[in-house]
Simulated scan of single mutants.
Amino acid sequence: MVGNQSLVRVENEESRNQISSKRRNFIKAASGAGIISTAGCLDKLSKSRGQNWPSGQVEIIAPWAAGGGSDRTSRAVADAAEKHTEATWNVKNQTGGSGSVGMSAVANAKPNGLTLGCTAPEICLYEHLGIADLSPDNITPIMQYTQMPATIVVHENSKYNSLDKFLSFAKSNPGKVKMANSGTGSSWHMAGAAFVHEAGIDVKHVPYDGAKPAITATLNGEVDCATVGAVEVAPQVRDGPLEALGVMYDEKLESLPQTPTMKQQGVDIVIGSWLAHFGPKDLPNDVRDSIVDTYNAVYEDKKFKKFMDNNNFLRVKRGPDELKKFLDEKYKYYGQLVKEIDVNK
């Protein structure tokens, strides 16, 4: 176990209580201060808050490769946002540094609301791992919109197509298993390292610039397995050619109904990732509030909800104030987790 407080269980009771097995389609946490309800709002939003926002094209920077959860959901947000503003929205992939390159570009952008970004647990990890001088204090939180439990996948023709076989081989061959992740210090790297620590095995972590390249490496035999988001591999697990060894969650997922949890198989771990959008640190309050209004409309947008549902993304909402508190808590959590486990093994 990792510490006396079970630090590998990254989702605390507050987070887990927000989500039950019968609430995949619509999950709405209590709104933080400053959130304005926009349910049913289908018209263009008023500019009464940030008078000049948006005054041009809005760009969302996805800090990982195209095809992953950050990229796909950001494009869905941009698509919906165009219906609720008078601006064009674009998504740009800016990879590198386990997401720090793209996130830093947003944090350092002109604070006019025209450059936004996608973030994940990595924002709470960079300083602890010495990857970048970037933390929740360097951004303006806008909204969290999803949560993604982790899983470990292998090729369906792998010699260890069950968790028992995988653990047995790894214990008998320390350091021989190559485990792909979405970048050194990424949330999937941390999930893999936490799993390895909890299971008492030794593997070689292999970083890639995003979940999709890590999954591809597993498919073509470059690595033995990958630790990624369950939602990112659900179609390939259901229809082949991947096999999920277990989900790092409290309960089975509707997207992977045949896959047991790790806990059910003897490895007591709950860990994963989440996605949120943010702006530069010094974003004016009136501009931030206008962006939040738009994101509230996006979250309730029928097409956006259909995309999330059809692609098995759990819908979890945190507004700017609640998200800021959440980020600060996770920053402390990951700082302790980094001290407890050897993420470089």
Score class of each variant (00 low, 15 high):
Ile271Ala: 08
Leu242Asp: 14
Pro213Val: 03
Pro260His: 05
Pro241Ser: 04
Gln265Lys: 09
Pro213Glu: 00
Leu245Phe: 14
Tyr249Ser: 08
Gln265Cys: 11
Tyr249Ala: 05
Thr218Leu: 05
Val237His: 08
Gly210Ala: 10
Val196Thr: 14
Leu256Trp: 02
Ser255Leu: 07
Gly229Arg: 05
Leu253Ser: 01
Pro213Asp: 04
Gly210His: 00
Gly229His: 12
Gly266Glu: 11
Gln258Cys: 08
Leu253Gln: 11
Gly266Trp: 08
Ile271Met: 11
Thr261Gly: 05
Leu245Trp: 08
Met248Cys: 06
His197Met: 04
Glu222His: 07
Arg238Ala: 15
Gly200His: 00
Ala244Arg: 04
Lys252His: 00
Asp209Gln: 14
Gln265Arg: 07
Asn220Lys: 09
His197Asp: 06
Ser255Asp: 00
Asp239Thr: 13
Leu219Arg: 10
Val203Leu: 06
Leu253Thr: 09
Glu232Gln: 03
Gly221Ile: 03
Lys204Asn: 06
Leu245His: 07
Thr259Lys: 03
Leu242Glu: 12
Thr259Phe: 08
Val231Glu: 12
Asp239Met: 04
Phe195Asp: 01
Gly240Met: 11
Glu251Ile: 11
Lys252Met: 06
Val270Gly: 00
Asp268Thr: 01
Val203Tyr: 07
Ile269Asp: 03
Glu243Ile: 09
Val267Ser: 01
Asp209Val: 11
Ala214Arg: 06
Asp209Ala: 15
Thr261Asn: 09
